[in-house]
Amino acid sequence: MPQQRASASLALDRTDKLLINRLQKGVPRSPRPYREVADALEIEEGEVIGRLRRLLDAGALTRLGAILNAPQLGGERTLCAVAAPPDRLDEVIAAINRHPEVSHNYERTHAYNLWFVLSSEDAADIGRVIAEIEKETGLRVINLPTLEEYRVEFYYELPV
């Protein structure tokens, strides 16, 4: 993961891991949410805030905030893939990533080597962005929306 590897050596102590595990499940919705978490971990509120700032700056956390649901906003979310020729990879990645509707993009080991998620509160954006990427790259985009959902698990418990 070259683009993420810089942070792979990040040293997390036990308190960091407990904090991440706790907050993956949700931030308390009370006037002093960080104090509530601090009390549970038996540390100070200021330490929770300081650790969160460090974890976000270092890239151990990509975000501490709201994760939105495109379909519930009247929009759509779908998984797409393209088979980018290896010698055009950077150009195709740029043509995909410049769209704000692209929320995730992963390189994978297959002829279809770029896998990206399109999310928008306006369902019409999905078809438009796919058409724009196809036009710009001259490559066919396959559109693989969810037909049935069997499992979605976001929580990953860090061993402490």
């Binding site: 993961m1 993420q4 590897r5 942070s7 792979a8 990040l10 997390l12 991440i20 907050l23 993956q24 499940k25 949700g26 931030v27 919705r29 969160l52 270092a58 890239g59 151990a60 956390l61 990509t62 975000r63 501490l64 905030g65 709201a66 994760i67 939105l68 649901n69 976001f154 990953y156 860090l158």
Partner: peptide, 13 residues
């Protein structure tokens, strides 16, 4: 809102 939570970077972890 699906979750109001911390999103970990699994690679960093």
């Amino acid at each position: 809102i699906k979750r109001l939570a911390a999103v970990p970077n699994h690679y960093a972890l």
